[in-house]
């Protein structure tokens, strides 16, 4: 946690000086954008943490462990991939939820499948893809990426399970 904080702080520092080089207050502008985002997303974040908290008390850990736990292997990765693809929210909603599932006993492979499935398929982005790129492109893209959550989960399971 502390390491993550320090890494982020260093990133912010470097970016701050890069943005400052434009000589037009780009660094202030960037910070203001970030703060604006934070304030706009605050209600969503509070709800996301409530959701994540209640998942941990409402869904029995045994159930999560049986379905996508460390010992669930192939089945866990498969379920994780499908469940991840169905997660519709942005990172602020999905990451707390995935983290809660992970802490309730999901295996590393299944957790990676959840994140990857959410990232490459994720129901939340499909409406945008459909309206901007059209159905033909969407089918082409999905046909190349649909197996990635599953493959990523299996690789993880094999090396880090």
């Amino acid at each position: 946690m502390l390491i993550a904080f320090l890494v982020l702080l260093a990133m912010a520092g470097v970016l701050f000086f890069i943005a400052r080089r434009d000589g037009q207050g780009g660094h202030i502008c960037g910070l203001r954008k970030g703060m604006g985002m934070f304030i706009r997303l605050a209600p969503l974040l509070v709800l996301a943490f409530l959701l994540a908290g209640f998942i941990q008390v409402a869904v029995p850990p045994e159930l999560i462990q049986e379905w996508i736990g460390t010992k669930s292997g192939f089945k866990g990765v498969f379920i994780g991939s499908i469940a991840g693809s169905l997660l519709a929210g942005g990172p602020y909603v999905s990451f707390p939820v995935i983290s809660a599932i992970n802490h309730s006993g999901a295996g590393t492979g299944a957790t990676v499948s959840l994140i990857t499935g959410w990232a490459v398929i994720g129901l939340g982005q499909l409406p945008f893809e459909l309206t901007i790129m059209g159905p033909r492109f969407m089918i082409v893209r999905l046909s190349t990426v649909f197996a990635t959550p599953f493959i990523a989960g299996l690789i993880t399971q094999y090396f880090f399970g």
Binding site: A12, L15, F16, I18, A19, H27, K33
Partner: peptide
């Protein structure tokens, strides 16, 4: 509460990235 400081810095980074 634990994550709040992390989030604050994360959003600063996000804003600065979109700026540069």
């Amino acid at each position: 509460i634990e994550i709040l400081p992390l989030l604050a810095v994360a959003f600063a980074v996000a804003g600065l990235v979109s700026q540069v």
